[in-house]
Amino acid sequence: MNAHADIAGQSLARQANDIARDLTRADPKVYWTDLAVTAAVTWLSFWIAATATSAAWSWIAGAVCVLALYRGISFIHELTHLRRDDVPFFHFAWNAAIGVPWLTPSLLYEGVHILHHAKDRYGTARDPEYHPLARRPLYELAVFLGIALLAPVGTVLRFAVLAPAGFLIPAVRRFAVARASGMVINPGFAREDFDRARGAPWLAQEIGCWLWSWGLIGLAVAGVLPWRVLATAAAIFAAMTFLNQVRTAVAHRWDNDGEVMAPLDQFLDSVNVPPPALLPFLWAPVGLRYHALHHLMPRLPYHNLGRAHARLVEALPADHDYRRAEERELIPALGKLIARMRRSLP
């Protein structure tokens, strides 16, 4: 670990906290309004996509649903940092409106993502959300992106097959919790929080997803629910997951070789895509465009990240380390990743 970078990183964190400490309080009105509107748009657009007789309307509604669902699913990141008393009942409402119906309950992220923020884990083999992609062959980027398209299959297997089987067979249960219950990037990561899996919130979400998946499949087999509805849901979910995977590819530099990183290096390994870029509103919603700032101040609610960034830009010099974490847009950032991967080849 670089001692200078360690000190500089601590200094940057102190500066950021001094400038934006008053913005760490979550506003329940923002969370509830955003969730209500996002869920309504998601389900309405899905209904149109799955039932419209016009192919054009079905495709348009499907595209809207992908973006709305992406925004809705992205709230899972907020849930891991949001204390339950900050916005009471929000975790339950999100799981009921988005998480369980789309087989992506918060159990998949809670207890996992927080490890990504541990200073002694970030960028190492113990980090569930880090893979040194920039040091890997270029074909791994195609695999990294393409595997996201299999997400519908993975979620159905997890909750329609492994969940009920795990309640009967302890070995399957251990595997399901350790290796199939986390939204992770590191293929070697395994969960160890088995006590959490025995808690009421986890069990309620898991059983809810199990019964929901069986109910939908049963209705389709019985001819009550058209197979088109399930096929549309799978296509939308796959497209949404692929979009998130592309965003993830540029959320970090992915340059670390597995050693423990200094705080400043951890910050600089992360990426902000601030204004004037407009498209991050779609491809990096719910504050994900400020990923580096989030690593600097994890307790900032998503609706205050833009204000905090503006304050930091105004208060800090133009050549400050804080500005080194910025990228202009998705495609340029993806191009830089590909260039780094090419340079890493022997």
Rank of each mutant, 00 (worst) to 15 (best):
H4C: 03
A5E: 04
A5C: 01
L12F: 06
A13G: 10
I19E: 07
D22E: 13
R25G: 02
R25T: 13
K29S: 12
V30T: 13
Y31E: 00
L35T: 05
A39E: 04
A40P: 06
A40Y: 12
W43L: 12
L44T: 15
S45G: 04
S45V: 07
F46A: 05
W47K: 14
A52H: 10
A52M: 07
A52C: 03
T53S: 02
A55L: 15
A61G: 04
A63M: 15
A63P: 13
V64S: 06
C65Y: 05
V66N: 03
V66T: 04
V66Q: 05
L67A: 14
L69Y: 12
I76S: 10
L79Y: 12
V87F: 07
V87Y: 04
P88Y: 08
P88C: 04
A97Y: 14
W102L: 11
L103I: 13
P105Y: 01
P105C: 01
L107F: 07
L107K: 03
L108W: 04
E110H: 13
G111P: 03
V112F: 08
H113C: 05
H113V: 09
I114F: 08
L115D: 00
H116R: 13
A118E: 06
K119V: 13
D120V: 10
R121D: 00
E129I: 08
L133S: 04
R135T: 05
R135H: 09
R136M: 11
A142E: 10
V143I: 15
A148M: 14
L149H: 11
A151T: 14
A160Y: 12
A160D: 06
V161Y: 15
L162S: 07
A171I: 08
A171K: 11
R174G: 00
R174D: 00
A176Y: 03
R179N: 12
S181F: 06
S181A: 09
I185E: 06
N186H: 09
N186G: 03
F189D: 01
D193W: 13
D193A: 03
F194S: 10
R198V: 09
G199Y: 06
A200Y: 13
L211T: 02
W212H: 07
S213I: 13
G215P: 00
G215V: 02
I217T: 01
L219V: 07
V224K: 12
L225Y: 02
R228W: 08
T232Y: 03
A233F: 10
A235C: 08
T241R: 15
Q245S: 04
A249P: 02
A251V: 04
W254M: 03
D255G: 08
D257Q: 14
V260F: 06
M261T: 08
A262Q: 13
P263C: 09
Q266I: 15
F267D: 02
N272G: 00
P274V: 01
P274S: 01
P276A: 01
A277Y: 08
G287C: 05
H295D: 02
H295R: 12
L296R: 09
M297W: 15
M297S: 10
L300F: 14
L305T: 14
H309S: 04
H309T: 07
A310C: 10
A310Y: 12
E314K: 11
E314G: 00
L316C: 05
P317L: 01
D319I: 08
H320G: 01
D321L: 10
R323W: 07
R323D: 00
A325L: 01
A325M: 07
R328F: 02
E329F: 14
E329L: 11
L330M: 09
L330V: 05
P332K: 14
I338A: 06
I338G: 02
P346N: 12
